[in-house]
């Protein structure tokens, strides 16, 4: 069975992050406030939404080509469409807010290790 790879701003990842490296995108965030009163408490709840949620994608390493592309996406401002290919069929407009990693070279192959791509979800497409 072919692996379905994530895409970001039209780029299909050469290598998906491992399952453990994908942040939670299954649950929405919900704002809730609790007001403690003198003898009780009230709670205020706002509708749950995926908007505003931060998702991190982590790789132990990625090929140099993928790094170059992702770095270009990171440096370009504006929102991008991210399809997590999580089986829900949903895509998201995201902003890339962080992209750290370490450059490595081994056996004459260049790659990046310990890469983390932090996506901020702006809206669902």
């Amino acid at each position: 069975m072919a692996v379905t790879r994530m895409s970001l701003d039209g780029y299909t990842f050469a290598r998906n992050p491992p399952a453990a490296g994908v942040g939670d995108i299954a649950t929405k965030g919900k704002a809730a406030a609790v007001v403690q009163t003198y003898s009780s408490a009230d709670v205020f709840e706002w509708p749950a939404t995926i908007v505003g949620k931060t998702v991190t994608l982590s790789w132990p390493f990625i090929p140099a080509g993928q790094h170059t592309t992702l770095a270009g996406k990171f440096e370009a401002p504006g929102s991008k469409v991210w399809n997590p290919q999580d089986g829900t069929g949903k895509s998201y407009n995201v902003a890339i807010i962080d992209y750290p990693g370490t450059s490595c070279k081994q056996y004459n192959a260049e790659f990046m290790k310990d890469v983390t791509l932090t996506l901020f979800i702006l809206s669902q497409v």
Binding site: G29, A31, A32, A33, V34, D42, V43, F44, W46, G52
Partner: peptide
């Protein structure tokens, strides 16, 4: 009126 920021429960209508 305040909607709390992520990770906080400081808000509501007071």
């Amino acid at each position: 009126y305040r909607q709390p920021e992520a990770g906080s429960t400081d808000g509501g209508l007071v």
